[in-house]
Design a protein around this nucleic acid. Structure first.
Length: 261
DNA sequence: ATGGTTGTTTAACAA
């Protein structure tokens, strides 16, 4: 089974890129974030025609939005509301093999890494607090997968310069420690880093760079986690960096996980 | 030290 996560930054504008990824990669499930698409405008027929009849989506006008595009059935779509907002930032389904799949879009958090002066950063930290409490209550003996744009690059080799990003939202100690506290409980394991344990690894490159590839000032903001029962089934991970260079790209690249079932 | 780009929706706002 192959699952891909991708922050698409408008599913309607980038529909041709999504269809290209489905065709080239043939994932069983593609999880999208930042669809920026109300549910009544989701391009259902295009995905069905591409061989992906099973869809789950929660969108809103202009911002946020999460979706799953699958060639396998997606049962009991559900969601949780986080940090006292109605944002479409979470979507979960049950797969045929009784594995729960969670798709998250964690708030970016604005520019200033101070919750006192920046409401958006306070919102991000509250979201992370609630994610920690929710993870504590999770039955990790059951197979579950968590994917999405978590908007945090936790490791020094998840960013182009650890030192230069210490005060940049996405790599500040307060966010990184919040994420690491969740991981330290042993409920979730970083599946991508279990498959690719060493070296620089990024999934996002800013639009503002003149030449994103030459500068290569990336960050690993997109993640795939699994509960302990699935660790033994991990069979490879990959960032499709080339997709960042496609025509009219998202600023995020797709992240792939393969399971040996 | 600063500005740099993109998408949605139309002058900001979010990322």
């Amino acid at each position: 089974m192959k699952i891909i996560t991708w922050n698409i930054n408008s599913v309607r504008l980038r529909l041709p890129l999504v269809l290209r990824l489905l065709s080239e990669q043939q994932p069983d499930v593609l999880c999208l974030q930042e669809t920026k698409c109300p549910d009544d405008a989701f391009p259902v027929a295009d995905f069905q025609a591409a061989g992906y009849p099973h869809l789950a989506y929660r969108g809103e006008k202009g911002y946020n939005g999460v979706a799953m595009i699958a060639r396998v059935p997606l049962h009991t779509p559900d969601h949780i509301l986080w940090a006292e907002k109605q944002d479409c930032r979470h979507l979960s389904v049950m797969l045929e093999n009784q594995t729960t799949l969670h798709n998250f879009y964690i708030p970016a958090g604005g520019d200033v890494p101070d919750p006192e002066s920046n409401d958006k950063f306070a919102h991000k930290l509250q979201f992370l607090d609630e994610l920690a409490e929710w993870s504590d209550r999770l039955d990790a003996s059951q197979p579950a997968i968590l994917v999405g744009d978590l908007n945090i690059a936790p490791r020094e080799d998840d960013v182009w310069s650890h030192k230069q990003l210490l005060k940049v939202v996405s790599h500040t100690p307060i966010e990184v420690e919040a994420l690491n506290r969740i991981m330290a409980k042993g409920k979730w394991h970083d599946a991508v880093r279990e498959m690719i344990p060493e070296g620089q690894l990024y999934s996002w490159w800013s639009y503002r760079a003149k030449d994103w590839l030459a500068a290569d000032r990336g960050r690993r903001l997109d993640h795939i986690w699994v509960t302990p029962p699935l660790r033994q089934n991990l069979a490879g991970a990959e960032v499709i960096t080339s997709a960042r260079g496609w025509e009219k790209p998202s600023d995020h690249a797709p992240v792939v996980i393969n399971f040996a079932f």
